[in-house]
């Protein structure tokens, strides 16, 4: 058991990730508005909130337009997640788009670029009703991002799949290099075990990613460099297995597979790390998208995300060693026909 501590650690980490990652509530947010256009005059807007408690106190609401404010003449909480707001919109706001700000229970909730104001002008007299209030540090909760909502938790179950795959493929690369160096079949077995375990994680990554994409971006598959890269990597390693399957002499097989593996890995790295940075991607942090590391991956998410990566990598390594040990016994049984 002494040498198995890391396996237990992996499981414990994942246990922590499942519990904290699924139980932590999302921060309250404004998710839907009944109007998207506010012409001058009286306008009534119904605001849908998520995890909000509008009825718990008297919420204040205002429009923010280029440091100018328009206060709501009325804000009535109909339910905890529904607020009816009335604005008397003046003529001549400076910007086309205004933010909607709601202050409720000591939290400031912002819906960015919420409304389009058709009558733009030189500016209005400032009402001065809405002092920009700094939020006090909130409780432990995950941010509520538009489109993502609760699926932000998939961060702990989708993204680490790719990390684990990369880690296993890197292990396989190292073993392939050693196979070429000293022709040791043990390293060859390690390399193929790492690849097949890595492929498990690649498939999990593809399926979970596809599910997630369907429910946020609206399609099962988009022509996204990250996605295409993932598919290409999966194909490359499937080809690796096909190559192994088509050669029978294990000495030659180990060498050919190692060469292909090294070649494939170099081009895969290129594909995965560089290409997405050259083109726009729907994935965060690439192209024009805001990075998870900038504000999406806030420190609350981090405290679960890093353990999730570590946990999945450890469990993946565990699966790989199991496969490798089985292969070793298999090779031993093959070698000695009548021991």
């Amino acid at each position: 058991m002494k040498s198995g501590w890391w396996k237990a650690l992996g499981v414990l980490l994942l246990l922590y990730v499942v519990i904290v990652g699924l139980r932590t509530p999302l921060a309250p947010a404004l998710v839907h508005l009944s109007e998207d256009k506010l012409p001058p005059g009286r306008n009534e807007v119904v605001v849908a909130g998520y995890n909000t408690r509008f009825t718990a106190d008297a919420p204040q609401a205002w429009l923010q337009n280029d440091a100018q404010f328009v206060c709501a003449t009325a804000a009535t909480a109909e339910r905890d997640d529904r607020l009816r707001v009335v604005f008397d919109v003046p003529d001549g706001l400076r910007r086309d788009l205004s933010h909607l700000v709601v202050r409720s229970n000591g939290r400031t909730l912002v819906f960015h670029d919420a409304f389009w104001n058709p009558a733009k002008g030189a500016g209005i007299a400032n009402a001065g009703c809405a002092p920009p209030v700094e939020d006090t540090a909130g409780p432990f909760e995950f941010p509520d991002r538009s489109v993502l909502y609760e699926t932000i938790r998939n961060l702990f179950f989708h993204v680490p799949m790719w990390f684990t795959m990369m880690w296993l493929m890197t292990l396989s690369l190292l073993h392939s290099i050693r196979t070429l160096r000293n022709n040791d079949l043990e390293h060859d077995r390690a390399a193929v075990s790492a690849v097949s375990t890595g492929l498990l994680f690649a498939f999990l990554g593809l399926i979970t990613g596809s599910l997630w994409a369907r429910n946020t971006w609206g399609t099962w598959w988009t022509s996204d460099p990250q996605l295409n890269g993932a598919a290409a990597v999966t194909l490359i390693y499937l080809a690796y297995l096909v190559l192994r399957g088509s050669v029978n002499e294990f000495d030659k097989r180990s060498r050919l597979a190692a060469i292909y593996n090294i070649f494939a890995y170099a081009l895969m790295i290129v594909f995965f790390l560089v290409l997405p940075r050259l083109t726009d991607s729907l994935h965060p942090g690439k192209g024009g998208n805001p990075a998870f590391s900038q504000y999406d991956l806030d420190h609350h998410l981090r405290t679960v995300f890093y353990p999730a990566v570590a946990g999945w990598v450890l469990v993946g390594t565990w699966l790989y060693t199991l496969r490798r040990r089985a292969r070793r016994i298999e090779a031993w049984l093959d070698e000695e026909p009548s021991a």
Binding site: D81, Y149, E150, T151, N154, F157, W212, N215, T216
Partner: peptide, 8 residues
């Protein structure tokens, strides 16, 4: 309301 929790 369900906040896409079913995806998770």
């Amino acid at each position: 309301r369900s906040g896409k929790i079913n995806t998770v």
